[in-house]
Design a protein around this nucleic acid. Structure first.
Lengths: 348, 348
DNA sequence: TTGAAAGCGCTAACAC
DNA sequence: GTGTTAGCGCTTTCAA
């Protein structure tokens, strides 16, 4: 490794002191125009690069922010992360990304890694409800701001950016009811594949489903709401197959997410069940595969860009204004109606 | 922000010098057992955390390695990155991940970011052929090791981890030929949607396709090999539609990647063309959606875990043994035969 | 086995 | 305007 030039080298070369070089480089107003010019020229001539470790040490700042997500195999979190990176690149912060394979233990390890890396703030989507609440609070108490996005820990006093899962789940279910009634089924049976207990969002989405049934005076049979162990395609396939094996065919199906919905669709299509004619299907939080299935999968799309930007902006504010109050931002989602629930959209 | 305890605090508390504390914490053998114990206890009692910026400054190391990928919307790169992170977590390195939206300019910005971050090494999958060769060489000359993975810049003298795109593309094409001949078509027409010129891999995959045709004495009509502008589903759909509009229906289709293949399949299915009965389809580099399409898409699967681990290990070696020679690792891939090319696999 | 002292590269009072 | 000096928190000679 070649020795990188430092401000001392520049100073020596120019016969001035390193403080002046430092000030000149920092654009400090008290530096004479001519010397500033000279310093800058010499700096670029010597290919000088500031040593950010030294700079950060003196300022005792790291200019790093940390991100923790449950996974990044699906495009969901990566799309948000891109926004976060774009935002912080402009602010001259580095972004340290960690993912925890849906494991709360790994999430904890990741938080520790970020803490050890002296990040100035953390953006996190919680992996498992309540598992690391103590750590979030500890970090906050230490003065490290945290902003939750998508999956928040509501028991923690921090900013968050989410959508109203209850509301959109309600709308999604309502849409399914409308579609079946349009076909003349006054009392359609609506099945729901619930998300795992560990995911905080599951409860809200489940309540939305239930309340939609209540509003439309539909009977709520417990066997129609089944709990998923994870949120994969295989699990959706397994649960739907089990239901069909019991000889039950619902009129519509609302799933916690797209992967479960796609698996369930595959299980049905394999048995010759026609979608959406016999069963209307609706997923949640728009996956990449939603447009690949046949028919295309209806889903609730979240404003990923806005989530990322908003969360980043909220975090920056906390970093720059330590005492500032927390904001719970609730963004709007979109109901993307496609062929899996609406016969009129089949050609799309 | 509360003042974090430093080794000075520990030293004062114990009435010893900070050098001793430093040595005790570093596990230096010359420290008396009893003082080492005392220091460690005090350290954990005070919740001491080493300031890595200070430590790195003195050692002039960053313990950060950088990763540059073209995108991480698809699961391909994230799966590799996870391996890289796991590997380097054990080695107590932080991993700085950047993605460049398939833009060579952004790739350059990312490299600069990594350079400014004083990373000790870089793992990169090249976005656009030749665009930043000068920068790679510059970094190498400066002493920053680089390891290419998946998409390498062959003109640069550095380690790389890839698969033999030519070979697997050849096999994939051959498989299509076999399948059509099995159906009695002695001279099947095999269409190829080539990757963009900018992607270095395109050439190798294209040669594999061509040579397979040659080997099997099939005529190679230039109109059967069309160039994709990008590697998206939409582009695949567009190109296939154009082909069909010209009244041409190939017997088989080999695509640069899965997304193009899926788009092309959609274009065909929409017009009632039957896959694999009328047209056999084969993608490349296994996407998440390959199992979601109906029929499921045949594809060439790359050993993502091994790619990640190998690349990480090669980089670490370069970091630890600066002079060590470069290694061009070529890993094995797998032909995943599914319903889109093989009628016998339709039920899978 | 330990302490004193120098220094990693930079910033920021405080002088002049 | 610019130089001097004193750190930021840690490691590492060199002495003792």
């Amino acid at each position: 490794m070649v020795h990188n030039p430092t401000i001392i080298d520049i100073a020596r070369e120019l016969g001035i002191s390193k403080s002046t070089v430092s000030r000149a480089l920092a654009g400090h107003p008290s530096v004479k125009e001519s010397t500033r010019k000279a310093v800058q020229e010499m700096a670029s001539r010597m290919r000088y690069k500031p040593n950010y470790m030294a700079r950060n040490l003196t300022k005792s700042r790291s200019r790093i922010i940390g991100v923790v997500v449950p996974e990044f195999i699906n495009s969901f979190f990566p799309r948000i992360i891109i926004q976060i990176q774009n935002f912080f690149e402009k602010e001259r912060f580095r972004v340290l990304i960690t993912q925890c394979d849906n494991s709360p233990e790994t999430e904890r390890r990741n938080l520790r890694l970020l803490e050890d890396s002296m990040v100035e703030g953390i953006l996190i989507s919680v992996t498992s409800k309540g598992a690391n609440t103590d750590y979030y609070n500890e970090l906050l108490a230490k003065g490290t701001p945290i902003v939750f996005f998508n999956r928040s820990d509501r028991s923690v006093d921090a900013s968050s950016v989410t959508i109203d899962d209850y509301k959109w789940s309600f709308f999604a279910t309502e849409h399914l009811i409308y579609m079946r009634r349009k076909l003349g089924q006054d009392n359609p049976s609506i099945m729901h594949i619930m998300g795992p207990e560990g995911i905080g969002l599951s409860a809200g989405r489940n309540r939305g489903y239930e309340d939609a049934l209540v509003k439309h005076h539909l009977t709520m049979s417990p066997e129609m709401a089944v709990r998923a162990a994870d949120i994969t395609r295989d699990e959706g396939c397994r649960l739907m197959s089990a239901m069909l094996d019991r000889g039950v065919l619902p009129d519509a199906l609302f799933c916690f997410n797209d992967h479960l919905a796609i698996g369930a669709m595959q299980a049905m299509l394999r048995r010759g069940i026609r979608i959406p004619q016999q069963v209307s299907v609706m997923g949640f939080s728009e996956s990449q595969s939603a447009l690949v299935t046949v028919p295309a999968l209806s889903s609730v799309a979240q404003p990923l860009e806005e989530i990322g930007k908003t969360a980043a902006a909220l975090l920056l504010r906390k970093i720059e204004t330590p005492g500032s109050e927390s904001v719970k931002a609730v963004l709007n989602a979109t109901l993307n109606i496609r062929g899996s629930s609406d016969p009129d959209a089949l050609n799309i």
